[in-house]
Design a binder for these strands. Sequence first.
DNA 1: GTAAATGCAAATTATTTGCAATTAG
DNA 2: CTAATTGCAAATAATTTGCATTTAC
Lengths: 147, 147
Amino acid sequence: MISPAEKRAPISRIEKLCIDKGMKMTGQRRVIARVLSESSDHPDVEELHARATAEDPRISLSTVYRTVRLFEEAEILDRHDFGGGRARYESVLHGHHHHLIDVDTGDVMEFEDERHEQIAREIAERYGFDLVCHRLELFGRKRGSRT
Amino acid sequence: MISPAEKRAPISRIEKLCIDKGMKMTGQRRVIARVLSESSDHPDVEELHARATAEDPRISLSTVYRTVRLFEEAEILDRHDFGGGRARYESVLHGHHHHLIDVDTGDVMEFEDERHEQIAREIAERYGFDLVCHRLELFGRKRGSRT
DNA sequence: GTAAATGCAAATTATTTGCAATTAG
DNA sequence: CTAATTGCAAATAATTTGCATTTAC
């Protein structure tokens, strides 16, 4: 039932990036790359490990930590701190955007805003800086929620 | 040489806030409040402890941790994460503003921008949220720096 | 074949907490 | 006087690392 073909998972978008950068693609790295490519949320390391081991149980937490760090340094992943003590990750392939965090539920919504981009560039310039990156995070409460 | 008068330090701005909120003002809490009132940068707990013990050596690190937490919950302090693994604090008395971080040196500059405030409110509204707070951080490199 | 990657357990780092002793109000 | 606060040392929680073993290229 298990044909050899099933072992060759298709190359994920992030795996492609890794190959282009000349990284050594181990089985675990390939799975983590796939999990990240398929995630449209902002998982933390614990969650990534859970998703990865669901596909292949022989992936250790250390490897997930090492891999997200590697990917972050290779500019494949963005790391975020939304509070709660754990770093959360998303692929840079999801593009440049910002976050609106529901302070009651922890839900994260994404948005873009061109006016904001313009203002950010302008402020950096005013101080004599080239903008490397920036983040805008809004923390809000659903209108009508008591408390 | 040491007159009794020297023991009565003037009441700092933050100590005043604490008293208004009915907090029990211990010696260590008073010193930490003063150090924070006099800081115009964004010290972490380690640094606050160093500044506090310089004024009075019998202040433990635990107490500094407990006090910044207390002050944060009382909305006397804002906590920031500028990367580097440690939380950094500043008095809310410094007003609402945002940060431009020099990625090479770690220096932090502050700025305000009314247009940005307006956009933030508007975006939250678009999603049906009341804005609780928000943060805008620009990471930049001094123009002309090689690398 | 060889340098790089992995798993595991132990180490680190930032922060929190239990508890007996101290202190503000 | 009494409840809140402190110091200290031990506990947590997230993340990193040393080292023997495995693996991609």
